[in-house]
Structure formats: C-alpha cells, structure tokens
Deep mutational scan, measured.
Amino acid sequence: MQAFVKTLTGKTITLEVEPSDTIENVKAKIQDKEGIPPDQQRLIFAGKQLEDGRTLSDYNIQKESTLHLVLR
C-alpha cells in the first residue's frame, strides 16, 4: 500500500509499505529515499510519536495515510 510522509519543509515522500511493517522498517525506507539516518527520524501520526517496535497496523495506519517526519 502507499503511505505518505510529510517533512517539515513541506516535501511529501511516497512510500510503499505494508500494514505489518514496523516503524523501524518505515524509517529504513525513508533513509533509502532521503538519506536521513533512522536515529534522527521521529514519525508522528494522529499527534502520537510512533515507536520503532510497533507496526503500522498497531497504529491503525491505512493506505494513503500521511505520517509527519520530524528530525531530532
């Protein structure tokens, strides 16, 4: 499924993900596309910070959801 990641600069990245993907996995995909190390990434969805060990389905993130990427 497709999900979108919006950065603070307003850029939107499109990712191909599965509901079973972990947040860690998603961060690795963002690193592949953008070169941002996962340890600098914080992903926010519905106002919550997403934890590495959880999956997209844990957070009820469905296709075409938009996550927000904040860098630390």
Score class of each variant (00 low, 15 high):
Gln41Glu: 01
Thr66Ala: 06
Ile61Val: 09
Leu8Arg: 13
Asp58Leu: 03
Ile36Lys: 02
Gly35Tyr: 03
Thr9Gln: 12
Met1Gln: 04
Pro37Ser: 09
Glu16Lys: 09
Gly35Leu: 05
Lys33Pro: 02
Thr22Gln: 04
Pro37Asp: 09
Ile61Glu: 03
Gly53Leu: 08
Leu43Ile: 10
Glu16Arg: 09
Phe45His: 08
Ile13Phe: 12
Gly10Tyr: 03
His68Met: 13
Lys27Pro: 00
Ser65Trp: 06
Lys29Gly: 03
Gly35Cys: 04
Asn60Glu: 08
Thr55Ser: 08
Glu18His: 15
Asp58Thr: 04
Leu67Gly: 01
Lys27Leu: 04
Thr14Asp: 05
Gln31Glu: 11
Asp21Gly: 03
Gly53Lys: 12
Asn25His: 11
Gln40Asn: 10
Tyr59Trp: 02
Tyr59His: 03
Val70Arg: 10
Gln62Arg: 11
Leu67Glu: 01
Leu69Asp: 00
Asp58Lys: 03
Thr14Asn: 07
Pro37Lys: 07
Leu8Trp: 15
Tyr59Lys: 00
Thr7Lys: 04
Met1Leu: 08
Thr22His: 04
Arg54Ile: 05
Ala46Gln: 15
Gly47Pro: 01
Leu67Arg: 01
Arg42Asp: 11
Pro37Glu: 08
Leu50Trp: 02
Pro38Lys: 15
Gly47Arg: 04
Gly35Ile: 02
Ile36Arg: 02
Ala28Ile: 13
Tyr59Glu: 02
Ser57Ala: 13
Ala46Phe: 09
Ala28Thr: 10
Thr14Gly: 05
Asn60Tyr: 06
Val70Trp: 10
Gln49Lys: 09
Val17Leu: 11
Thr9Lys: 10
Val5Met: 02
Ser65Cys: 08
Asn25Asp: 11
Thr55Pro: 05
Glu34Gln: 07
Leu43His: 00
Thr9Ile: 07
Ser65Gly: 07
Lys6Glu: 08
Glu51Met: 11
Phe4Lys: 06
Glu18Cys: 11
Glu16Ala: 09
Met1Ala: 03
Lys48Ser: 08
Gln62Phe: 11
Leu50Thr: 03
Leu8Val: 14
Thr66Lys: 05
Pro38Ile: 15
Pro38Asn: 07
Thr55Val: 07
Asp39Asn: 12
Thr14Ser: 09
Phe4Asp: 03
Lys48His: 12
Lys11Tyr: 12
Ala3Thr: 12
Leu50Asn: 01
Ile44Arg: 05
Gly47Trp: 05
Leu69Cys: 02
Ala28Glu: 11
Ala28Lys: 14
Asn25Gly: 09
Gly10Leu: 04
Gln40Ser: 09
Val26Gln: 00
Arg72His: 12
Lys6Asn: 06
Thr14Glu: 10
Ala28Arg: 15
Gln40Phe: 09
Phe45Ile: 04
Ala28Phe: 12
Arg72Val: 15
Thr22Ser: 08
Phe45Leu: 06
Lys27Trp: 03
Gln41Pro: 01
Lys27Gln: 02
Lys29Tyr: 07
Arg54Val: 06
Gln41His: 04
Arg54Thr: 07
Ser20Pro: 03
Gly35Arg: 06
Gly53His: 15
Asn25Ser: 14
Ala3His: 03
Gln40Trp: 11
Val70Ile: 14
Asn60Trp: 04
Ile44Phe: 15
Tyr59Met: 03
Ile61His: 03
Thr12Cys: 10
Lys11Trp: 09
Leu56Ala: 02
Lys6Phe: 08
Ala28Gln: 14
Glu34Leu: 15
Ile44Asn: 05
Thr7Pro: 04
Ile36Gln: 02
Gln2Phe: 13
Ile44Gly: 03
Asn60Arg: 07
Thr12Gly: 03
Leu69Trp: 02
Lys6Val: 15
Arg42Tyr: 14
Ile13Cys: 02
Val17Trp: 04
Gln41Phe: 14
Lys11Gln: 09
Leu15Glu: 00
Asp52Thr: 05
Ile30Ala: 01
Leu8Ser: 15
Leu56Asp: 00
Pro38Val: 15
Thr12Asp: 04
Arg72Cys: 12
His68Ile: 14
Val17Gln: 00
Phe4His: 09
Lys63Ala: 15
Val5Gly: 01
Ser57Asn: 11
Lys11Glu: 08
Phe4Val: 08
Ala3Lys: 01
Arg54Phe: 14
Leu15Gly: 00
Met1Ser: 04
Thr9Pro: 04
Glu34Tyr: 08
Val5Pro: 01
Gln2Ser: 10
Val70Gly: 05
Ile61Ser: 03
Ala3Ser: 04
Ile61Gly: 02
Ile44Met: 13
Gly47Tyr: 05
Glu18Arg: 14
Ser57Cys: 05
Val70Ser: 08
Lys33Trp: 07
Arg54Lys: 15
Glu24Thr: 08
Thr14Lys: 09
Leu69Gly: 01
Pro19Thr: 07
Thr9Phe: 12
Glu34Ser: 14
Ile13Leu: 09
Leu50His: 00
Pro37Cys: 06
Thr7Val: 08
Ile61Tyr: 04
Lys48Cys: 08
Leu43Trp: 01
Asn60Leu: 07
Asp52Ile: 05
Glu51Pro: 02
Lys33Leu: 13
Leu43Asp: 01
Lys29His: 04
Gln40Met: 12
Lys33Ser: 11
Gln31Arg: 13
Val70Thr: 10
Gln2His: 12
Leu50Met: 09
His68Glu: 11
Val70Tyr: 14
Asn25Leu: 13
Asp58His: 11
Gln62Tyr: 11
Gln40Gly: 06
Gln40Asp: 09
Glu16Gln: 12
Gln41Asp: 01
Leu69Asn: 00
His68Tyr: 14
Ala3Gln: 04
Ala46Leu: 12
Val26Trp: 00
Lys11His: 11
Arg54Gly: 06
Gly10Trp: 04
Pro37Tyr: 06
Val26Tyr: 00
Lys63Arg: 11
Ser20Asp: 11
Asp58Glu: 10
Asp21Arg: 01
Lys33Asn: 05
Phe45Gly: 02
Gly35Ser: 05
Gln2Pro: 07
Pro19Tyr: 08
Gly10Pro: 02
Gln31Phe: 15
His68Asp: 08
Arg42Trp: 12
Glu18Ala: 13
Asp32Asn: 11
Asp39Thr: 10
Thr22Val: 04
Phe4Trp: 07
Asp52Ser: 06
Ala3Tyr: 10
Thr66Cys: 06
Thr9Arg: 10
Lys6Met: 12
Asp32Thr: 11
Glu24Gln: 12
Gln41Ala: 05
Leu71Cys: 06
Ser65Arg: 05
Asn25Arg: 14
Arg54Asn: 10
Asp39Gly: 10
Leu67Val: 06
Asp21Cys: 05
Asp21Pro: 01
Leu69Ser: 01
His68Phe: 13
Pro37Val: 06
Gln49Glu: 15
Ile44Val: 10
Gln62Lys: 12
Val26Thr: 03
Ser65Phe: 14
Lys33Ile: 14
Glu16Phe: 13
Ser57Ile: 08
Pro37Ile: 05
Leu50Tyr: 01
Leu50Phe: 02
Gln41Val: 09
Val26His: 00
Gly53Val: 06
Leu8Glu: 15
Glu51Val: 08
Gln49Ser: 10
Gln31Pro: 01
Leu69His: 00
Leu15Ser: 00
Met1Ile: 10
Ile23Ser: 02
Glu24Gly: 12
Leu71Thr: 11
Phe4Leu: 07
Thr14His: 08
Leu56Trp: 04
Glu18Thr: 15
Ile23Phe: 02
Leu56His: 00
Ile30Glu: 00
Arg54Glu: 05
Phe45Pro: 00
Asn60Gln: 08
Arg42Leu: 15
Lys63Gly: 14
Glu34His: 09
Arg54Ser: 08
Lys29Asp: 02
Ile23Glu: 00
Glu34Lys: 05
Lys48Met: 14
Asp21Ile: 05
Val26Leu: 11
Ile30Met: 03
Phe45Asp: 01
Leu15Cys: 02
Gln31Trp: 15
Arg42Lys: 13
Ile13Arg: 00
Pro38Glu: 07
Glu18Leu: 15
Leu43Thr: 00
Asp32Val: 13
Glu18Pro: 03
Glu16Asn: 12
Thr14Met: 11
Gly10Gln: 04
Lys29Thr: 03
Thr55Met: 09
Pro19Phe: 09
Ile30Gln: 00
Glu24Lys: 12
Asn60Met: 07
